[in-house]
Amino acid sequence: MAITSRAIFWCLCCEILIVAGGAAAAQPALFESRQVTPAGEYTFGIEGPAVDLDGNLFVVNIGRAGTIGRLSQGASQSEKFLDLPEGSVGNAIRFSPDGTMFVADYKKHNIFLVAKGASDAAVWFHSDQMNQPNDMTIARDGTIYASDPNWKGRSGRIWRIARGADGAVQGEVMTAPRAMGTTNGIDLSPDGRRLYVSESNSGQVWSYSLHGNDLTDARLIRTFEPDTVDGVRTDVSGRLFVARILKGAIAVLDPNGSLQREIVLRGKEPTNLAFGGSDGQTVFVTQRQGGFIESFRTDREGREHCLQRGNC
């Protein structure tokens, strides 16, 4: 049977629609979480997820305390990346724009540095005055802000750690306009002017203006139930993603604290989260219950991912 030009045209259109529809169907739905790695890969102390420039996810305490695991981009199983020095246990990992890894060692009060391409950790900063370095965030100029909770005293503070004019690494406890609770999750606004801090004991999330070593203009932006907040990360639009430990969810807040949505997770005890993937719109979540990693897609890039790519 002869086929007319018009018939050929409509056949091609149908084929294009089918291909396009299939590609769209292959994309994961936004804000729907799935388990990525097997249960039991990591210990109860699973924490500190961070993604490097190559898309590899790094998480502390794979198999046993004092280790760092790596989940290669697209993989479904982690492998051990390195062992920290004897007696040290990591809690947070962050990457600077040049690919340097920093690890908060809460046991020995260190901030370790792992140079890009290296597989061993060197002490970058140490202070016996720390309760324990818990979580960290990195500013555009390389300054590290670290939460320092005192769990027994149900109090905490923030450290500012940076290289001085002489090149030496210096760390100071930041002055604050109020007595803080157990400081835990921490991140910066996209413009770097405000610091967000979650306090586990009160379930509160606070915002501060940054002025050198001073925290000013304290604003309570959201209160959850006590002991139900952990890690905090921001995206390029300024939204906050808050790990609701014991609640099995990630709360998404606007910069003023209004709840935009809650993302229901597979596990019930999320400790922290990190943005990654090729476009910075995949969120990886560490799950204390079961010791695994899950992930979901979001609609905007993470602040740190954008910073690492040099686009922010």
Rank of each mutant, 00 (worst) to 15 (best):
F241R: 02
I245W: 11
Q35A: 10
W151E: 06
F284Y: 15
V252E: 09
E301L: 05
E225A: 15
D187T: 11
A162G: 00
Y106A: 00
I62H: 01
M174A: 07
Q289T: 09
L17E: 11
G156W: 11
W159C: 04
D230T: 04
I111C: 01
E47W: 04
D54L: 04
K116Y: 13
W10P: 00
T228F: 08
F241Y: 15
T223E: 14
G248L: 13
L220P: 02
D166N: 08
V36G: 01
V169Y: 08
Q260T: 00
G238K: 02
D227S: 11
A274N: 05
I93V: 15
F44C: 02
G212T: 12
K80Y: 05
R239H: 14
T298E: 07
L195K: 08
R233N: 04
D54F: 08
V19N: 01
F224H: 12
F112S: 04
S200L: 09
G277T: 12
Q289R: 10
F9Q: 09
I250H: 05
G153C: 01
L210K: 06
T223A: 14
F112L: 09
R261F: 10
D230N: 11
Q170N: 14
R300K: 14
P133I: 07
V89Q: 13
P149T: 07
G74L: 06
D230H: 09
N311L: 15
S88Y: 14
F275R: 03
V232H: 01
Q77T: 15
G142K: 12
T43F: 07
Y145A: 04
T228K: 04
M130E: 07
L30E: 06
V36E: 12
L307V: 10
T100K: 02
R239K: 09
A168K: 10
T182Q: 12
G267F: 10
A24H: 13
N256I: 01
V264Y: 10
R194I: 01
A65V: 12
D148Q: 03
P97N: 11
I68C: 02
Y42R: 07
C11E: 09
D128E: 15
